[in-house]
Design a protein around this nucleic acid. Structure first.
Length: 403
RNA sequence: GGGCAGGUGGUCGAGUGGUUAAUGGCACCAGACUGUAAAUCUGGCCGCGAGAGCGUACGAUGGUUCGAAUCCAUCUCUGCCCA
């Protein structure tokens, strides 16, 4: 089998391995079942999950079997890692519906066909029926407080308040791994680097109770050059669900990344060959825009499919390249063509309040059909819809068609 | 159970009776410069209103006061210490 771990490493995915050599050997000699956990805390994944799916996808293509674990049970607790506050708890109903949505998205990345078909499991299926006393006896006895408290994520939380309830998260996640290990012979858990301590917990638990074939792998989190999380927008996270973040907006996000992010984004979020990634990211000055276009197209294609990616690319080309093709522009049908520009902007969801819309106009940030709007009381009329539509431009990059 | 310290806008964090819709950082949005980049500079960043202004907001509810995020009471939540 191919040395997939080496490939992942070359590609820049890997942050840490629990057992460097053993893992490399294992993946060379057999088809390995591995799992990745996803918390269904929203009805869509965001780009934070993207890298995880890419890793899972690559491992599967190399012949290994992905187990996608939906944290329907653990999400009721909330992972304390990397958080300063306790997560808001969700109801069972919300969680169930989120799980269903997220499943659909995961299906774009991993295949459910063939010898190493991926499987999806929900830890609610086994966690919810646990008996407390039995669990504490069997699992709880394997963990020492001193070790848990020494972990960075708990240390921080210790100062702001950490409940026993939340500490249980580590035990549950470790138990998940043990469960999957026994039931599906799952040997590796992968996760973002913030999951390191949770992953080690599971690895050690299995090694104590069952066998020595348990490993962990963490991948890099998507951050900008200055260490901030990528994927923040005015509307919050960059979602994979097209209703939350349209393919066009999604494309634009990647089209607009900083030069320093190009290489990371290309190598982590696309399947382009490594040489191509190198070539593209070494482009200088204005030429690097080509690399960004490719990155945006490829990434959008992965999430939203080729057709949507093409549309987004064409829409961008039309707007920024001079030709005024508006076919693929995000479009809103207004309640009336005789409303104020302010209301139109709100209906098109370009702004969240009239005050914001006014500020933008006052700052010269809004154009209608290429003409800068200067009057905040401007009212739309038929003459603005000469070709059957009008185009509102917010800033330099945001275009919206209204009909 | 007792004592102490806290709960401020998306976030972090100032503010201890009026000049506080509340300093500042971060995030985000826009303008200038550019390459739909970065850095930098400028403006914006609760809602409504063209504006003056109005409404709502500093854990919750009452109260004191001409006036409260700021004082008092009760409740609630969090942290620390003692039991």
């Amino acid at each position: 089998m191919t040395d997939i771990i080496k490939e992942l490493e070359d590609r820049g995915y890997i942050e840490q391995l629990t057992h460097d050599e053993e893992i490399r050997e294992l993946f060379k000699k057999e088809s390995v079942s591995f799992y990745i956990g996803i918390d269904p805390t929203a009805n869509s994944m965001h780009i934070g999950h993207f890298v995880a799916l890419m890793v899972a996808s690559r491992l599967q293509k190399a012949g290994h079997r992905p187990i996608i674990l939906m944290g329907g049970g653990t999400a009721t607790i909330g992972d304390p890692s990397g958080r300063t506050d306790m997560r808001q708890m969700l109801t069972r109903e919300q969680l169930d519906s989120n799980v269903a949505e997220i499943k659909k998205q995961a299906e774009r990345f991993v295949s459910f066909e063939g010898d190493n078909a991926a499987i999806i499991v929900n830890n609610a299926d086994w966690l919810l029926d646990l008996k407390y006393i039995d669990f504490m006896k069997e699992i709880g006895s394997q963990f020492t407080m001193s070790k848990m408290l020494a972990q960075e994520c708990y240390k921080n939380r210790l100062e702001t308040g950490l409940t026993f309830f939340e500490m249980g998260y580590l035990l549950l996640q470790s138990y998940d791994f043990l469960y999957l290990h026994k039931k599906y012979n799952c040997k590796l858990q992968i996760g973002g680097n913030d999951q390191w301590s949770n992953i080690i917990g599971g690895v050690e638990l299995i090694r104590k109770l069952d066998s020595n074939e348990a490993y962990g792998l963490t991948f890099k989190l998507l951050t900008t050059a200055d260490g901030k999380k990528m994927g923040k927008t005015a509307k919050g996270a960059l979602w994979l669900n097209p209703e939350r973040t349209s393919p066009y907006e999604f494309y634009q996000y990647w089209r607009n990344i900083g030069d320093t992010e190009v290489e990371k984004v290309l190598s982590l979020l696309t399947y382009l060959p490594t040489e191509e990634v190198k070539r593209l990211s070494s482009l200088k000055d204005a030429e690097i825009n080509e690399a960004k276009k490719i990155a945006a197209y490829e990434i959008t294609k992965l999430i939203h499919g080729e057709e949507e990616a093409k549309k987004a690319a064409e829409a961008a080309e039309a707007l920024f390249g001079g030709n005024k093709n508006t076919d693929n522009m995000p479009t809103t049908e207004l309640s009336s063509r005789n409303i104020s520009i302010l209301d139109a902007m709100i209906e098109a969801k370009l702004v969240s309040s009239k005050g914001q819309a006014k500020d933008l106009i006052n700052q010269g940030g809004i154009s209608l059909n290429d003409e800068k709007i200067t009057d905040i009381k401007y009212v739309l009329s038929e003459k603005d819809f000469k070709e059957g539509y009008a185009i509102i431009q917010k800033g330099k990059k945001v275009f919206h068609k209204i009909v």
